[in-house]
């Protein structure tokens, strides 16, 4: 029975690795400028974790195979080097691995979070609420008008709580239900929540950021591929959580300008 267990462990380990090696369910296609750094980090980690996984499982299986059912007169053998060797191995191998991953991984994180958005980044505001995202473009004046929580009204389609009669800056603001952006242009996304915790996740963009009620956050990214992608909420926000999503439309600059004009006309 021990040998069967050994074989089972090896079969499970190899079978588990096959879908990863064959890329049966790959990472979502990267459509961002900096995403490849995350993907490289992921691949490096997959190598290290995968080798650790297979090596440990196979070693476990081998020892189970070899040392079960000992002869009646068998004596217990001590692992060469004893515990000290294993402790040193753990510190050296895993310590190096962990340190390397930590140090190299910091670069991708830094580009996403420490590097400020470029001066020409296009500002767009996003508001998350149960169970929809709304987006706001500043319009020709380049300024967002102030928000008034008490004016928010789903019925009047005033999703942000804008006062377009009194606030000069709000008059030309463009509110949409989808996020259209020009390709290869950096976007500075200003995030706030209307009600509860939500999240902004676009797998292809390698962008993932929670909305924090009471806190204004921002992220920046550049999309490199024209197309239509999903924005999903990953922070449990209530009964409609699973259906809370919006679309990211990455357009050519000309298409984007036309779209924005069309949206402005609809306001």
């Amino acid at each position: 029975m021990a040998k069967l267990l050994a074989v089972t462990i090896v079969v499970i380990a190899i079978a588990s690795a096959i879908p990863i090696v064959m890329h049966i369910w790959p990472l979502p296609q990267d459509i961002s400028v900096n995403g490849h750094l995350i993907d490289e980090q992921y691949t490096d980690t997959m190598w290290e974790a995968g080798v650790s996984f297979l090596a440990s499982q196979i070693l476990l299986a081998y020892f189970i195979w070899k040392y079960s059912r000992p002869a009646p007169n068998a004596t217990v053998k001590r692992f060469p080097g004893g515990a000290a060797a294993l402790v040193i191995a753990a510190f050296v191998l895993v310590g190096t691995e962990a340190l390397a991953l930590g140090v190299f991984g910091a670069k991708a994180w830094g580009l996403a979070y420490f590097a400020p958005p470029g001066a020409d980044a296009m500002p767009v505001q996003v508001q998350a609420g149960q169970f929809a995202f709304y987006f706001r473009y500043p319009g020709p004046d380049g300024k967002f008008g102030p928000l008034h929580a008490n004016l928010i009204s789903e019925a009047n389609a005033n999703f942000f709580g804008l006062d377009t009669t009194n606030d000069q800056d709000s008059k030309d603001d463009i509110v949409t239900a989808e996020l259209a952006i020009p390709v290869n242009r950096e976007i500075h996304l200003l995030m706030h929540s209307k009600d509860l915790g939500h999240s902004f996740y676009v797998p292809g963009l390698r962008v993932h950021q929670d909305f924090v009620p009471g806190l204004d956050l921002s992220i920046h990214f550049t999309a490199t591929k024209i197309g239509r992608y999903e924005i999903v909420c990953t922070q449990l926000c209530g009964l409609g959580h699973y259906n809370m999503k919006a679309y990211l439309e990455v357009k050519s600059p000309e298409d984007f300008d036309a779209w924005l004009k069309q949206q402005a006309a609809l306001q």
Partner: peptide, 25 residues
């Protein structure tokens, strides 16, 4: 032991903030 190894190695991914952007939640 086998389960602990299998579940443990995926911790390498989730320990890194950059990969967590992809895999969080």
């Amino acid at each position: 032991i086998s389960m602990f190894i299998s579940g443990g190695v995926s911790g390498f991914f989730l320990a890194q903030p950059s990969i967590d952007i992809l895999l969080h939640a």
